[in-house]
């Protein structure tokens, strides 16, 4: 680790079906886009790394791309329980999908580990003529949600054109407790679940609460 630092974080994507979670992931991981992408069954696990030039840190994201369908909802806690970051995705052409994304934020605030980096992402920014969600509306919601001092990263992107996708992951990378992770390699290991050892929530919360943000 003489040349820069390395940290590993878990990230989960949540949101209504068909808002483009898998498309965002595939744009980020493989820089590809498929208009005909099928809906995800259960969840897919992928990895991708970014480098933050200012701190010379390489961040490896372990990404859970979850299915948006209601019937998989009961599985969601398994994915965000260990997550360091969450992307709540909505489709800017669907108001209903924003409400769903807000529900996820609510659930994360209640159930997810303390200190999880939450991001609200509006996808399909290329479809401006069908826009149903105005940025002002999102800003107002964020203002209310962050009155308690918490932070929610917001952004818009288009998985189709690639606009703003990498930006989201860079923003999240900067918000993550990188120093801590690099220092003791702690949160990196806390995120892992090697065989059979049940990492109880209490333990993890201790490690999480000591992180910054």
């Amino acid at each position: 680790m003489s040349q820069g630092n390395f940290a590993q974080f878990k990230l989960v994507l949540l949101g209504e079906s068909a808002v483009g979670k898998s498309s965002i992931v595939h744009r980020f991981v493989k820089n590809t886009f498929d208009d005909m992408r099928e809906s995800t069954i259960g969840a897919a696990f992928l990895t991708q790394s970014i480098t933050l030039p200012e701190s010379k840190t390489t961040i490896k994201f372990e990404i859970w791309d979850t299915a948006g369908q209601e019937r998989y909802k009961s599985l969601a806690p398994m994915y965000y329980r260990n997550a360091n970051a969450a992307l709540c995705v909505y489709d800017i052409t669907s108001k209903a999908s924003l409400i769903k994304a807000q529900d996820w934020i609510k659930e994360l605030k209640k159930q997810a580990p303390e200190g999880i980096v939450i991001s609200l992402v509006g996808n399909k920014s290329d479809l401006t003529e069908n826009r149903e969600v105005e940025e002002g509306e999102v800003d107002e919601y964020i203002r209310q949600m962050t009155e308690d001092g918490s932070v929610i990263i917001t952004s818009e992107c288009s998985a189709k054109t690639g606009d703003g996708v990498l930006d989201i992951f860079n923003k999240i990378g900067r918000a993550l407790p990188v120093e801590e992770a690099v220092g003791g390699n702690r949160s990196r290991q806390a995120g892992r679940r090697p065989g059979g050892v049940d990492l109880g929530r209490t333990n993890r919360q201790q490690t999480q609460s000591s992180s910054c943000c």
Partner: peptide, 21 residues
């Protein structure tokens, strides 16, 4: 059949691990 259906549009899906109930 279920596994085949998940990859119809991405024969190169080698990188992702699936976890499905």
């Amino acid at each position: 059949s279920m596994i085949e259906s998940t990859e119809l549009h991405e024969p190169d899906s080698g990188e992702g691990d699936l976890w499905m109930p």
